[in-house]
Design a protein around this nucleic acid. Structure first.
Lengths: 141, 141
DNA sequence: TTCACTGCAAAACGTTTGCAAACAG
DNA sequence: CTGTTTGCAAACGTTTTGCAGTGAA
């Protein structure tokens, strides 16, 4: 599945309005976020730009944008999803102390995916790698 | 955190009953499961052995057993946790077609953890690797 | 004029918790 | 006795949905 460009989406794909004002605001909020906001944080930021926006619309917009390949959803454990402006495949590290989440990219993941496919006998599609540990600020040594 | 042996737990750790009848049944259900049951599936199986057991007790027992290192919890996406009798570190593959989840073990994960630590500047603690793709039965080629 | 999208509230889902009663040591 | 655990029901946090009304092409 190839990402759609913002223009393709704005143009509409045969039917709908596609990039509505609300979706645009939600996208901007995610792209402007330094970290990786939860839906609740996106909602808080979005309502400053568009006070009438509803929680449900934020969720629906995030889902839409995710399916369009414009944002990336990060899930870990049973906590709330976080959203990421980085849509290319990448890896995550999560601090078990403060919850900080950072992106990074491990060059060996493509060969890793092949190795994982061999071991599991699955046809590989994507690989998800998360390091859990202590972030630079929380590590004491 | 070292896993406690079943005996250590049964002996009690200074205070409680530790491995109660309910917890024992929940543990047995997870260990007897071929696949990776959800809490709901554990509940269904457990009530066949212990008809009065409650949903909450299944959840509490699973949490207890997880903290004691006797079972492993697998979370992926926003779906329900699955439980795994395999408590040693290992990797997972999930079928995007039928949801099948299999365990495997990638020997390169320990060096991978070091590499991830360098890239993220985190102090590493554990690494979680999940392959998403098509299981042997769902792959068409 | 149409049809997708919004906002609201309610529901759904997985999971946890408060509490009184039951139980084990 | 004492303190932990149970069962129940109710609450919780996150996410989705039904539906009437709005708004953009």
């Amino acid at each position: 599945m190839r990402n759609q460009s913002e223009e393709q989406i704005r143009a509409g794909r045969g039917g709908g309005t596609a990039l509505t004002q609300q979706r645009k605001v939600v996208l901007e909020v995610v792209q402007a976020s330094a970290g990786h906001p939860t839906a609740a944080e996106v909602f808080e930021a979005a309502r400053k730009l568009l006070p009438k926006i509803s929680y449900a619309t934020v969720y629906n917009s995030l889902r839409y944008l995710k399916e369009a390949g414009l944002v990336h959803e990060i899930t870990f454990g049973n906590s709330a999803s976080r959203y990421d402006r980085e849509t290319e495949r990448h890896d995550h590290a999560i601090c078990k102390e403060c919850g900080e989440l950072v992106d990074f990219n491990l060059p060996e993941t493509s060969s890793l995916m092949l190795s994982a496919a061999e071991h599991s006998r699955f046809k590989p599609e994507s690989i998800h790698l998360t390091l859990v540990g202590l972030c630079p600020r929380c590590r004491t040594d």
